[in-house]
Computed example of a mutant assay.
Amino acid sequence: MEISVELLKSLFELHDGVITAKELAEAGFTRTLLYICLLNGWLIKESHGRYVLADNQPDEFRMIQNRSEKLIFSHGTALYLHGLSDRVPHELDITVPQGDNVSRIKRDYDNTRFHYCKKEIWGLGITEATTPQGYTVKIYDHERCICDLIKDKKSVDTQIYSQAMREYFSGKCNPRKIVKYAREFNIEEKVRTYMEVL
């Protein structure tokens, strides 16, 4: 198999900029070819069994989420992707179900902050958003983000908290949906207070 930069680029585009050793093998890349690509500096090993193009600035949101289907961007990171916060996150907030082992991801990405939630509510409000580089990732919807903020108020930056609450309750508010979510989080009374005040 002859390797060309164009072939590599098209292959990586199909896989959102990150490709696994298995996917490379399925595309006809032997271990020897993979080694040649690494040796020539065309590919970089991103993490165990995962590769990115050397001349391409990979999308960090996509790279991290590709590590597990259970990683959902939440809190400040989701607010930023929704446009409810203008602060670019220095740490990426990720929610996973309680009991999930994310130690390897924490080790590989020190700019991540993990939040754990009960498995029953982990899937509540999952939607998709586009990253600044144009990739699609899974995040929590507006209502879930607001409930997470209220629930974790003590650990949230005051400015992010205030801006998100103002933005949401002054225009993007879906009263029925947020009250439904609030019941799941046992914060219905707090949410109703915010709805009245804001």
Rank of each mutant, 00 (worst) to 15 (best):
168 Y>N: 08
193 T>P: 00
193 T>N: 09
181 Y>E: 10
119 K>R: 10
58 P>E: 05
42 W>P: 00
27 A>E: 12
28 G>E: 02
151 K>H: 15
55 D>Q: 09
84 L>V: 06
162 S>K: 14
57 Q>I: 11
135 Y>R: 09
1 M>G: 15
116 Y>L: 04
142 H>A: 15
192 R>F: 09
9 K>E: 13
151 K>R: 15
131 T>N: 09
120 E>I: 05
124 L>I: 10
97 P>I: 01
144 R>N: 01
12 F>C: 05
48 H>W: 12
82 H>C: 06
64 I>A: 03
137 V>D: 02
125 G>V: 00
127 T>R: 03
35 Y>C: 09
126 I>G: 08
8 L>H: 12
151 K>S: 15
75 H>V: 04
39 L>V: 11
130 T>L: 11
101 N>F: 00
66 N>H: 07
85 S>K: 12
52 V>Q: 02
15 H>M: 00
147 C>V: 04
144 R>S: 03
35 Y>H: 15
105 I>A: 04
18 V>E: 04
20 T>C: 08
14 L>H: 00
128 E>M: 07
143 E>S: 14
164 A>T: 13
44 I>P: 00
70 K>C: 05
93 D>A: 01
73 F>P: 03
161 Y>M: 14
90 H>G: 04
144 R>Y: 02
116 Y>F: 10
150 I>E: 06
120 E>A: 10
19 I>G: 03
36 I>T: 09
84 L>T: 07
148 D>V: 06
166 R>L: 15
91 E>T: 06
34 L>S: 14
46 E>R: 15
86 D>Y: 12
137 V>S: 05
142 H>M: 13
5 V>C: 10
144 R>H: 02
187 I>V: 11
175 P>D: 13
118 K>R: 11
177 K>P: 03
3 I>W: 13
4 S>R: 14
86 D>I: 12
60 E>M: 08
56 N>A: 06
21 A>K: 13
198 L>H: 14
69 E>P: 08
33 L>C: 07
101 N>A: 00
46 E>I: 12
92 L>C: 00
30 T>E: 08
21 A>S: 15
68 S>H: 02
144 R>T: 03
72 I>A: 03
10 S>V: 10
83 G>H: 14
130 T>S: 11
46 E>Y: 15
139 I>D: 02
77 T>Y: 01
142 H>K: 12
46 E>V: 11
81 L>H: 08
70 K>H: 05
34 L>A: 11
161 Y>E: 08
152 D>G: 09
125 G>P: 02
14 L>S: 05
183 R>H: 14
109 Y>M: 06
114 F>I: 01
174 N>G: 05
79 L>Q: 04
149 L>R: 02
158 T>D: 13
113 R>L: 10
156 V>S: 07
173 C>T: 13
108 D>A: 14
78 A>F: 04
169 F>M: 12
45 K>M: 13
3 I>D: 12
114 F>C: 02
147 C>I: 07
34 L>T: 11
59 D>A: 04
148 D>T: 06
142 H>Y: 14
112 T>L: 06
138 K>N: 11
136 T>R: 10
63 M>D: 06
16 D>K: 03
69 E>W: 03
167 E>R: 15
186 N>F: 12
102 V>I: 08
12 F>P: 04
24 L>C: 10
85 S>D: 06
194 Y>I: 10
57 Q>V: 12
122 W>I: 01
50 R>L: 15
26 E>Y: 11
114 F>T: 01
22 K>Q: 14
30 T>C: 07
22 K>I: 09
51 Y>E: 08
168 Y>E: 05
16 D>Q: 05
